[in-house]
Design a binder for these strands. Structure first.
Length: 432
RNA sequence: GUGGCUGUAGUUCAGUUGGUUAGAGCGCAAGAUUGUGAUUCUUGAAGUCGCGGGUUCGAGUCCCGUCAGCCACCCCA
């Protein structure tokens, strides 16, 4: 083993795995565009201050999971651990708040210094969406519909949408007090983790998995019955819209989320295919973030969706679908044939056609056929002494094993055109 | 950050109570077949046994440390 290895919790992605990424990314972009969201790109690192103020000082992310470094100008920088704060910062900087609603999507890596395990990495990739300027539940619904379409369009049928409301500044403080009043007298019997949560972030008690907490949890005051009427109406309207559009969901009364900036709606799309991690997608409303970062009061809602987890869930639910053979394997026998075919290969690659593979190592014919299989090529073009003498090319369909001889033109461009036409007739539209 | 399990060819793994030159399947390469993909047969290449230290006459094997992977907690995408 070399001592030069990828950093802990990072992945190298090779073909054909990278093709699955491209397919997914293309599908996600297409859906976002269809919903009227435009792509935003922001730097991969930002001033540390942005995340401390945006995500919240006492969150796990800020306390222990950030990749923070000092640059040469002694500025504290952080590789983005999430993407909402950077988007808000960019819009703030360009003074793009205060007028019409704005919608963005993003796609790329994010970084968290965590201990890797199934479904958890230090560099992972996220597709996300942010909708600014709409206070009503229609925007919540739109964003959720987008996420659900992404999930369902890829055939992830076992993914489940969970939604909840965590209230706003009007009702959450009172609820927090009620929670404290409920748990404080029994603090000693809570799990060690929950005792810490009690002081730091009492809402987090709600989703504790510790068995010793469950009895107290069952009798705890619920978020829902403590919502103010505005929050409750918002939540009920969202449920109504989801019902009306046929989007299945579960009300998860104990769902809370890790970032400080959420208010009212929070949601997750969960899958059982992710090991101990369950969230494929997580998001919610953050009506106070823009103003907290110094901008005008601007309601907003969005989500982030983990691509590694998405692909993991896909792999777990799909039977490996073999992709159709495509393109040419050019098999040359001898240096002369190779020399003759290279202009043809070049011409084939200049016209927009299927992929063209060729091996230069002068391997024997058997091996070159095997290369064709490995490349998943559909057709083999064979050129040896016979073909050179007759001005022909032998073409073998690697799927049906049919062979045909093709008399070819004088120039490589003509030959390439002939080959492409031949391919189109037989492979792309065989019944035309 | 805490805990458990695991590190031996490209890969999946075997390797006896510590005992000479570390093995196999698959894959890869060459050939059998001077131009046809599966199968078969022959041959071959490929390993600082994760890394460092210790115990020992002797360590892949035992001990310590370290790094990495996997899994769970925590947390989240």
């Amino acid at each position: 083993m070399s001592t030069l290895v990828a950093p802990r919790g990072t992945l190298d992605i090779f073909p054909p795995e990278s093709a699955r990424w491209q397919t997914l990314e293309a599908a996600l972009r297409a859906i976002a565009l269809r919903f009227g969201y435009g792509e935003i790109r922001t730097p991969m690192f930002e001033a540390t201050e942005l995340f401390v103020r945006g995500v919240g000082e006492t969150t796990d992310i800020v306390e222990k999971e950030m990749y923070t470094f000092l640059d040469k100008g002694n500025r504290s920088m952080t590789l983005r651990p999430e993407w909402t704060a950077p988007v808000v910062r960019a819009l703030l900087e360009k003074k793009r708040f205060g007028q019409e609603a704005q919608r963005f999507f993003y796609l790329g890596p994010f970084f968290r210094y965590e201990r890797p395990q199934a479904g958890r990495l230090r560099q992972a990739h996220q597709f996300g969406v942010e909708a600014f300027g709409d206070a009503g539940p229609e925007a919540d619904h739109e964003v959720i519909a987008l996420a659900m379409q992404a999930v369902q369009s890829q055939g992830l049928t076992e993914a489940v949408l969970q939604i909840n409301s965590i209230g706003d500044q009007a009702c959450r403080p009172a609820y927090r007090e009620a929670l404290l009043a409920h748990f404080r007298p029994h603090a000693a019997s809570l799990s060690a983790d929950s005792q810490r949560r009690l002081e730091r972030n009492p809402l987090r008690l709600l989703d504790s998995k510790a068995p010793e907490d469950q009895a107290l949890l069952a009798t705890a005051p619920t978020l829902y019955e403590n919502l103010c009427s505005a929050c409750r109406e918002h939540f009920e309207m969202l449920c109504h819209l989801l019902d009306a559009t046929g989007i299945p969901y579960r009300h998860a009364p104990h769902l809370v989320r890790g970032f400080d900036y959420y208010s009212r709606t929070v949601f997750e799309i969960t899958s059982t295919a992710l090991g101990a991690q369950t969230a494929l997608c997580g998001g919610g409303r953050y009506d106070n973030l823009v103003s907290a970062l110094g901008g005008p009061a601007t309601p907003a809602v969005g989500f982030g969706l983990g691509l590694e987890r998405f692909l993991m869930a896909l792999a777990a639910t799909h039977n490996t679908t073999s992709t159709a053979r495509s393109g040419w394997q050019v098999i040359t026998l001898g240096a002369k044939a190779r020399e003759t075919l290279i202009p043809v290969v070049t011409a084939l690659r200049q016209i927009a056609g299927p992929p063209v593979y060729i091996d230069f190592a002068d391997r024997k014919i058997v091996t070159q056929y095997k290369l064709g299989d490995r490349n998943n090529a559909r057709m083999a073009i064979i050129a040896g002494e016979n073909e050179l003498n007759n001005q022909t090319l032998l073409i073998r369909d690697l799927e049906t094993r049919e062979e045909s001889s093709l008399r070819v033109g004088l120039t490589s461009t003509q030959t390439a055109q002939q080959l492409l036409q031949w391919y189109q007739e037989r492979v792309l539209s065989p019944h035309a």
